[in-house]
Design a protein around this nucleic acid. Structure first.
Ligand SMILES: [Zn+2]
Ligand SMILES: [Zn+2]
Ligand SMILES: [Zn+2]
Ligand SMILES: [Zn+2]
Lengths: 152, 152
DNA sequence: CTACAGTCTACAGTAACTGTAGAGGCAAGA
DNA sequence: TCTTGCCTCTACAGTTACTGTAGACTGTAG
C-alpha cells in the first residue's frame, strides 16, 4: 500500500487540494500521517473516504449529514434505518426544491413571454417584478429554491 | 405621504429589519431620511423599491442582477433589451438547476428503493454513496444544483 | 546547482443574509 | 413623572462550503 501526497489524492479523487485540507479542518477526514518534513501522506483508505464524501456532496447531502453517515459506517452490525432515513430526508429536500424551481420557471417564463420589447417604461418584465400582487401564487418559491444544496 | 420607521417598512414588505439595513449597506436601497434622533424614516417609494427587490430575490435573481435592473429602471426611454436579457439569463439558470435536481432526484430514489433494510454492512445506500463508478451518469449534477439561488 | 512545481500554515473573501451585544429612543399606562 | 416594554441604533460575529492569497519551505528533474 503506497502512500501519496495531497496532490496525488486530489488527482485521484477530483477534490481540490485546498478542499481536502478544509475537510480535514472540519473533521470530515482524519488527520493523515506526515512525512519527516511535515507533508501529508495518505493511504488508499483516504481515497475511499474522500470518494464517499464527494459523491454524497455531489448528491447535495450537507456536511452534517455526511458526518452522520460516516459515524454510522463504523459499526457495520447496526441496522441501516438511520442511513436510509438520512437519504430519504435528502430526497425530500431535493423534491421540495424541485417543486419550488418549477414554480420559478413558470413565473419567469410567463414574465418573459409577456414582454414584446420596446421601452423600459412599458417592459412587462419590470412591471411583473414590481408588482407581486399580480402573481397567481401565494407563497414564493424562490427563497429556498436556489440554495442549501451544494454549488459548484 | 407618511413616513414610516424601519419596522413599519419591514411589516409592509415582509423583509426583515436587519435585511433592510443590509440592503442599504450594499447600496440596493438608498439611504433614507433620519429623524432627529437618528432613526431611519421611509416614504412610499421605499416600499415600492423594496417590494421589487424582494420579488426579484424570490425569483432567484442574484443581487448583482437586481442592481442592474434597478439601474436600468432609471431611464424609462431606453429599450428593454437588457432587462429581458437578464430575465432570460435567470430563466436559463433556473432551468439548468432543474435539470440537475432531476438527476439528483433520480439517483437518490434509485439508491433508496434498492435498500431493503438490514444491517449497515449490506446497506445499498452506503454502497452506492461509496462507489460512484456504478453511477450511470457521467458528470454529477449536485455540485451546482442546490445553491446559487436564494435560500430561505 | 538551480529552477520550478508542490506543500505548508494562517487568514481573508465569497453570497446573502442572520444573530448578538450594548446603548439609546419612544409611546402608553400607573 | 416614572416605568415598562418594545423599537431602533451601530458594529461585529456567525452561517455554508468552500476558494484564494501570502510568504515560506520542500522535493525533484535537468
Ligand atoms: Zn421587456
Ligand atoms: Zn411572483
Ligand atoms: Zn439501507
Ligand atoms: Zn452518483
Amino acid at each position: 500500500m503506497s502512500l501519496m501526497t495531497i496532490g496525488k489524492l486530489s488527482g485521484a479523487t477530483g477534490v481540490k487540494v485546498t478542499t481536502i485540507r478544509y475537510y480535514e479542518s472540519i473533521d470530515l477526514l482524519d488527520e493523515p500521517e506526515r512525512s519527516a518534513s511535515g507533508q501529508r501522506l495518505y493511504g488508499d483508505a483516504a481515497v475511499e473516504r474522500l470518494g464517499f464524501i464527494r459523491h454524497a456532496r455531489d448528491l447535495g447531502f450537507p456536511v452534517s449529514a455526511i458526518r452522520e453517515l460516516i459515524s454510522l459506517q463504523v459499526d457495520p452490525g447496526r441496522d441501516c434505518d438511520l442511513v436510509d432515513q438520512i437519504a430519504r430526508r435528502q430526497l425530500g429536500e431535493v423534491r421540495r426544491r424541485l417543486t419550488q424551481l418549477e414554480a420559478l420557471e413558470a413565473e419567469l417564463k410567463r414574465m418573459i413571454t409577456a414582454c414584446e420589447g420596446g421601452k423600459i417604461a412599458s417592459c412587462s418584465v419590470l412591471a411583473a417584478l414590481g408588482h407581486h400582487e399580480q402573481c397567481l401564487h401565494e407563497e414564493h418559491a424562490g427563497k429556498e429554491v436556489l440554495a442549501a444544496l451544494p454549488s459548484k
